[in-house]
Computed example of a mutant assay.
Amino acid sequence: MKRLFFSTSQFLPGIGLALLRIGAALMMLTHGWAKIANFSNNLTTFRDPIGLGPAVSLQLAIFAEFFCAILLALGFLTRLSLVPMIITMAVAAFIAHADDPFATKEKSLLFLLIFIVLLFLGPGRYSVDAQIKKGRNY
């Protein structure tokens, strides 16, 4: 039990970071997939929070929530893929749901917090990025 709570090994933090990265990515992926599956319906009902038109806004949300989420789950181009996800969650929380009660924007704020933390911490040792870096001498 002491090993678990007082370990200085990089194994447990690496596993924790992988769980956070993969879990958040898979949950975000479900939001992106729902937008893809109902694309034609969403074209007529999707909000235009930043003035680019509903179609462009929907496509940007799908890019962030589905395609960038796949990259995040793999830990490939992690920090680069987090930028659109952070922007999307910030727009959702502070623009699209600005007038909504906190309970409505809470999910996007939680995703935003997770994505910002992952941006600072990076993908961790159990990621494609780490495997690529291992093969190079930096």
Score class of each variant (00 low, 15 high):
Thr30Asn: 03
Asp129Asn: 09
Ser7Phe: 10
Ala69Trp: 01
Phe111Arg: 04
Leu80Gln: 05
Met1Phe: 08
Asn38His: 14
Arg3Trp: 07
Val83Ala: 07
Leu113Thr: 14
Ala18Arg: 03
Met85Ile: 15
Ser40Asn: 12
Val128Cys: 06
Leu43Gln: 14
Ala34Pro: 00
Met85Ala: 14
Ala61Cys: 12
Ile62Asp: 11
Thr8Ile: 04
Ala34Ile: 01
Leu52Arg: 10
Leu52Glu: 08
Asn38Gly: 09
Thr104Asp: 13
Asp129Thr: 07
Asp100Thr: 11
Leu118Gly: 08
Leu74His: 10
Ala73Gly: 14
Gln131Thr: 15
Ile50Cys: 01
Leu29Asp: 01
Arg125Phe: 09
Ala69Met: 04
Phe11Cys: 04
Ile50Met: 11
Ala130Asp: 10
Leu113Lys: 00
Thr30Met: 05
Val128Tyr: 07
Leu121Arg: 09
Glu65Thr: 10
Thr45Phe: 15
Leu58Asn: 03
Leu119Ala: 15
Phe5Ala: 02
Trp33Gln: 01
Trp33Asp: 00
Lys107Val: 05
Asp100Gln: 14
Ser127Leu: 02
Gly122Thr: 02
Phe6Ser: 13
Arg47Asn: 12
Ala18Lys: 05
Leu109Trp: 02
Gly75Ile: 02
Ala64Phe: 11
Tyr126Lys: 02
Leu77Trp: 14
Asp99Met: 08
Arg21Trp: 01
Leu118Arg: 06
Leu77His: 11
Ile86Trp: 03
Val83Pro: 05
Pro54Lys: 07
Leu121Thr: 06
Gln131Phe: 13
Gly51Arg: 06
Pro123His: 13
Asn41Leu: 15
Val91Met: 08
Thr44Ala: 15
Gly75Lys: 11
Ala64Cys: 09
Arg125Glu: 12
Thr104Asn: 12
Val91Pro: 07
Met27Lys: 09
Met85Val: 14
Thr44Ser: 15
Ser40Trp: 13
Ala34Asp: 02
Lys2Asn: 10
Arg136Val: 12
Thr88Trp: 04
Glu106Thr: 02
Pro123Arg: 12
Pro84Cys: 06
Ile50Asn: 00
Ile62Asn: 12
Leu110Pro: 00
Met28Trp: 02
Ile36Trp: 04
Phe102Thr: 11
Ile62Met: 11
Phe66Thr: 12
Leu19Cys: 07
Leu77Gly: 14
Asp129Met: 08
Asp129Arg: 06
Gly16Asn: 09
Ile50Gly: 00
Thr78Gln: 13
Pro123Val: 06
Arg79Val: 07
Met28Leu: 08
Met85Arg: 10
Asn41His: 13
Leu58Cys: 11
Ser7Ile: 11
Phe115Arg: 06
Leu121Lys: 05
Ala103Lys: 09
